[in-house]
């Protein structure tokens, strides 16, 4: 909602993503800070930011599929894995540039996602959740059982560094700029999609598929496309992951990771791109804190053993998800929007 007394002067301004000068300034400052981050922050923080940027791409894709189109998806990590493996195989076997491997990774994941999306046309809710979990198992099964010369089997695949005009993108800082560039394109594209007729079609199918049909929306195709787009984002994120870690292994893409992505969009708020980004930030910070604090606890209370970090991570994140669903079921973005609109129109009723 606009501040009191400000009315959109055209349909175009009414639909803009950035609507006020203050929003534009805030966005510019935020992007400026991100661009300058490698000069302002420690290497550790840049490493965390790299993880956040990659997660952001994947969570935004999941937001489109689950938050906007309402299609439960517990296979996002598998789709990420398909992208990561596609990029790794292409880069290590053909020496193809990352400018090609990243989009191809997206398309490979999109194809895989689309196949699961086709089943979404027929089943809903719990059964769909189960089917998307099958994506996880199918992915693991394929990697571990296909000849290891194809997918590396249980040994994984080592990935050569990304290269642009002879410059090797290695080290957290140059990788940070690569991730930032790709994430910016993907997030801007997500705003474009959700503000177009496709975004409306997704919401229509989510809210009332009978009415969506009578609007001329092909419900089955729209659901499948939601998976396709969501998986494309996961594939692109997976490719970035492959270039960041320079190694892919099947246990990097588990059901737990899928659940973390779901946690991100739940905590941030379903049906909001910015919400997905907020969720990524919150969950990644919590994960980082646990990863830092956990081993110390495990050391000092030795009878707990080393598994405490992983177990603790899941318990605490589970608590965060449950807590946010109880206290803030519509996510942090929803709370923010309420605060913002009551502040903006103050002291007038509208």
């Amino acid at each position: 909602m606009d501040p009191s007394g400000i009315f959109p002067t055209s349909y175009r301004t009414d639909r803009r993503v950035v609507r006020t000068r203050w929003q534009a300034i805030a966005l510019a400052v935020f992007m400026g800070l991100l661009l300058a981050a490698p000069y302002l922050a420690s290497g550790r923080i840049i490493a965390v930011l790299n993880m956040m940027l990659i997660s952001a791409v994947i969570a935004v894709g999941l937001q489109i599929c689950t938050g906007y189109a309402g299609q439960i998806n517990l296979g996002q990590a598998a789709f990420m894995g398909v992208g990561a493996y596609t990029a790794s195989i292409l880069a290590s076997k053909t020496g193809m540039s990352f400018l090609l491997t990243i989009p191809l990774a997206g398309f490979a994941a999109a194809l895989f996602g689309f196949l699961f999306g086709l089943t979404a046309a027929r089943i809903k809710g719990f059964y769909l959740a189960l089917t998307t979990i099958a994506a996880q198992f199918l992915f693991h099964f394929a990697v571990l059982n296909l000849p290891s010369s194809w997918m590396g089997g249980s040994n994984g695949i080592t990935v050569p560094p990304a290269e642009l005009f002879g410059f090797r993108i290695v080290g957290e800082t140059s990788q940070f700029y690569m991730n930032l560039a790709v994430a910016t394109i993907m997030i801007a594209g997500a705003f474009g999609i959700i503000r177009s007729r496709f975004g409306r079609a997704f919401v229509a199918v989510r809210d009332d598929d009978v009415a969506a049909g009578i609007m001329g929306i092909n419900v089955a195709a729209t659901k499948a496309n939601a998976f396709l787009i969501g998986a494309f984002y996961a594939g692109v994120g997976g490719a970035l992951w492959a270039y960041l870690i320079r190694f892919v292994g099947v246990d990097q893409f588990t059901l737990f990771n899928s659940i973390f992505f779901i946690a991100m969009i739940i905590v941030g708020g379903m049906g909001s791109i910015v919400g997905a980004l907020v969720g990524v930030f919150v969950i990644r910070v919590i994960q980082e804190v646990i990863a830092t604090v956990g081993p110390n606890i495990a050391d000092s209370v030795s009878f707990l053993g080393g598994d405490i970090v992983f177990a603790g991570m899941n318990v605490i994140l589970g608590g965060v998800i449950a807590g946010s669903m109880i206290l803030e079921p519509k996510g942090l973005m929803h709370r923010w929007n309420i605060l913002k609109s009551s502040f903006r129109i103050w002291p007038f009723p509208y």
């Binding site: 801007a188 474009g192 177009s196 007729r197 496709f198 496309n225």
Partner: peptide
């Protein structure tokens, strides 16, 4: 189409 929605705001 969706590609236009992504690239051609």
């Amino acid at each position: 189409n969706v590609v236009q929605a992504f690239f051609q705001y």
